[in-house]
Design a protein around this nucleic acid. Structure first.
Lengths: 236, 236
DNA sequence: TATTTATAGTGTATATGTGACACAATTAAA
DNA sequence: TTTAATTGTGTCACATATACACTATAAATA
């Protein structure tokens, strides 16, 4: 078989930005790096692409390894390839963006990888260009959440409207009007009233909804302009 | 210096999707491939990433080589990495998305590369997964043009509102109402009336505008919801 | 048992933006 | 000078967004 007459072949890494929401804060799953260089410092969860592996498969493997979860929301974000980004050797990193339901993760696996959930406002400095990757991912989260109903990916299967509101307030770091938020959300037709009530609450119990997964797919592009203009994503 | 103990290093390609607009149709700059495999077939313009080269620099080099243009609108689109995407050898391709002013390109350079401008509705089948790359790029163009004022990148420095309208009609493949289009455009405050008139027209001459580049940067995120909902990007 | 406190749920008036549509103005060719 | 093609501007009805106030529920407490 023909092989290209080009000398330089490059190491390909995959790094994963894994978002979760604990009901109050948006969090990232970060690990203490267990290999040189920069061993012991905080970084994104990553790994090297295998020869027999598609990119998304590699990302799925890395995420499964750390969280025990499959079939979650993952998209490719951007590829970082500055010549000097990794001091050891030239490495190009394809960065993936994942949203998970934080309750579902396998805490044993997380512990064994020396990983932790860390709030966005308490992020430590990360190795290499991982800070840039995170900035880009937060920008993308804000962008995408204003246009498409991806917020649900961060919530449990059953959720209340106040929970959803707290999520959006966390994403955009801004208070929202309860009444307008509720009306706008319900008008999307994406929520199904389960009839049940939230039992956690100490006062009036909120209605539990679930996502209408059929309409979710239909309406994935019809969620535009969900956030007010003043909240439109701006680089941070 | 430390080097990672991983065996597989991979060939990294860059492919560029270059859009132009001739006043009537959106066009892509495609080349007849001059190396094996698939020599002689249509493909995107591409090349291999050099060892000493950042990704964007590589993309800039490839685009400059073909068009003679620098400082144009380029963004990274997506990285394609299916194991079998290139039959010769595993190659991961980082795809870039470029918008150029079609009048400005160096037609000698284009000719010497066996390249042609081809309308979106007359695209030939392309090699490998380049068709997928193009689909993704068209989707991205529609998405982005509805949210950000990038259409200007495809027009000459001086342009008329009817020209701009034809551009958006071409992007979304739909007729738009002249009056509403004009009102919406002017309300962005991005256009500066040059006082001049278009001389090409055979009937009433349209006013020539130029882009307010300062407001362009300020308003890059404030262009949301520009297209009607019915035109929101849908996968093709 | 009544009251208090915290949170959830619904309604309305006003302003703003959008889409549909009609008419006047300009230019060159017939 | 009439005609045909294209550009520029105005208006009305309707939908949507925002700001804001009141009612309902549940648990703790007086």
């Amino acid at each position: 078989m023909y092989r290209y007459p080009v000398t330089s072949r490059i190491l390909l890494a995959i790094d994963c930005i894994i978002f979760g929401f604990d009901g109050k804060d948006i969090k990232l799953l970060l690990v203490k790096r267990n290999l040189e260089p920069e061993m012991g410092k905080w970084s994104l969860m990553g790994g090297f692409l295998r020869e027999d592996e598609d990119l998304e498969v590699g990302a799925g493997r890395i995420i499964y390894d750390l969280t025990g979860l499959k079939n979650i929301y993952v998209e490719q974000l951007e590829t970082f390839g500055k010549v000097k980004r990794d001091p050891a050797e030239r490495t190009v990193s394809v960065v993936f963006f994942a949203l998970i339901q934080i309750e579902e993760h396998d805490s044993e696996a997380v512990k064994s990888h020396n990983a932790s959930w860390i709030s966005l406002d308490q992020l430590p400095g990360l190795i290499f260009d991982h800070d840039d990757m995170v900035s880009r991912a937060i920008e993308h989260l804000r962008y995408k959440a204003a246009l498409h109903p991806i917020g649900f990916e961060l919530l449990p299967e059953l959720f209340t409207i106040p929970q959803l509101q707290k999520l959006y307030e966390a994403i955009y770091n801004t208070p929202l009007d309860r009444r307008n938020f509720s009306r706008k959300l319900l008008s999307t037709g994406l929520l199904i009233d389960t009839g049940c009530k939230n039992s956690n609450s100490t006062t009036k119990k909120a209605t539990l909804y679930k996502l209408d997964t059929i309409r979710y797919k239909e309406k994935f592009h019809a969620f535009w302009n969900f956030m007010p203009d003043s909240m439109k994503p701006v680089k941070i």
